[in-house]
Design a protein around this nucleic acid. Structure first.
Length: 280
DNA sequence: GACCAGGATTGCT
DNA sequence: AGCAATCATGGT
């Protein structure tokens, strides 16, 4: 079943695809402006056939209305960027919003995958983190129609620390990943059930688990759930991006960034996203 | 061969 | 409450 879609606001699918292509686990074809994504057990293909000013898409592989809603939700096809763009033109980030106009938040395809990926990325340079993530999914996940899916939490819950150590994960990180996978597998932690809760509730709930700190919890809200008002102050990438933007000779302290959050609110997630985009 | 990396935890004042 | 040490290893 093929479904056509047109948007009534500027939307840069070109930017989305190039950003998705940064992760080798994603299935992006830049020459055809196409991406394949997994929605549960179904593979959906989204092709861009429009422009920034007149975004149009062809969506193939849909089997149910729920899957269509998931696609809308993942790509935020149903959330206009107009008001957000207007908001930032009146801030000190206006140059970034002109440069990356139409860039939306894209949420991860799997909530569990989001948590695992964040833990792997903690405190590691991006290229090594990418290597580890790819190795993890290729070893424990499965491939379907050319797409790599994160493993079920049950699989990771039953691993030994030593198995992950051999794959160059640190002992601590292996403990974090196995521990959180166990909590999810045993249903002590239900990620999907968090969707209806407030940001603050979700933060406090996730931080209870060993291995999930503020940065990982905020990242879950931003890239797992697509929440709009997160700015992970601990993030080195954001600090470096602001250093460059503000022409500093050092990274800004958290206390120097914090005062700006009010002027970016309630869209701090977009401030973060566009700052990341500016150094990628 | 330092020092840093899309942090978090632990232990010490 | 707030700091320093610790973690593993690839990049630069």
């Amino acid at each position: 079943m093929a479904q056509a879609l047109e948007l009534a606001f500027k939307y840069s699918m070109e930017d989305v695809l190039s950003r998705l292509a940064l992760d080798p686990l994603n299935c992006v074809d830049l020459s055809n402006q196409t991406v394949k994504i997994p929605i549960d057990e179904t593979i959906i293909t989204i092709q861009s056939i429009g422009t920034l000013h007149e975004p149009k898409f062809m969506i193939n592989g849909l089997e149910t209305d729920q899957q269509y809603e998931r696609v809308l939700s993942i790509f935020h096809f149903n959330r206009s960027l107009e008001r957000i763009h207007e908001h930032f033109l009146g801030t000190n980030l206006h140059s970034l919003f002109l440069k990356f106009e139409g860039t939306p938040i894209i949420t991860d395809f799997s909530l569990y995958g989001n948590i695992i990926k964040s833990i792997i990325h903690q405190q590691l340079n991006l290229s090594f983190a990418k290597t580890l993530t790819e190795r993890f999914v290729h070893t424990f996940g499965r491939s379907k129609e050319g797409i790599w899916l994160y493993p079920a939490p049950e699989i990771i819950a039953n691993l030994e620390v030593s198995t992950l150590r051999e794959m160059q994960f640190s002992t601590r990180k292996a403990e974090y990943m196995i521990g959180i996978s166990k909590a999810i597998a045993e249903d002590n932690l239900n990620l999907k059930a968090l969707v209806s809760q407030s940001d603050d509730f979700i933060l406090s709930e996730l931080i209870k688990y060993r291995g999930i700190g503020p940065w990982t919890a905020e990242s879950f809200l931003l890239f797992g759930l697509g929440r709009e008002n997160l700015f992970p102050l601990a993030d080195i990438g954001l600090q470096n991006s602001l250093k460059q933007l503000w022409n500093l000779d050092r990274k800004p302290m958290k206390s120097e960034i914090a005062p700006h959050l009010d002027s970016w609110s309630p869209y701090n997630s977009y401030a973060a996203l566009y700052l990341w985009r500016n150094i990628e």
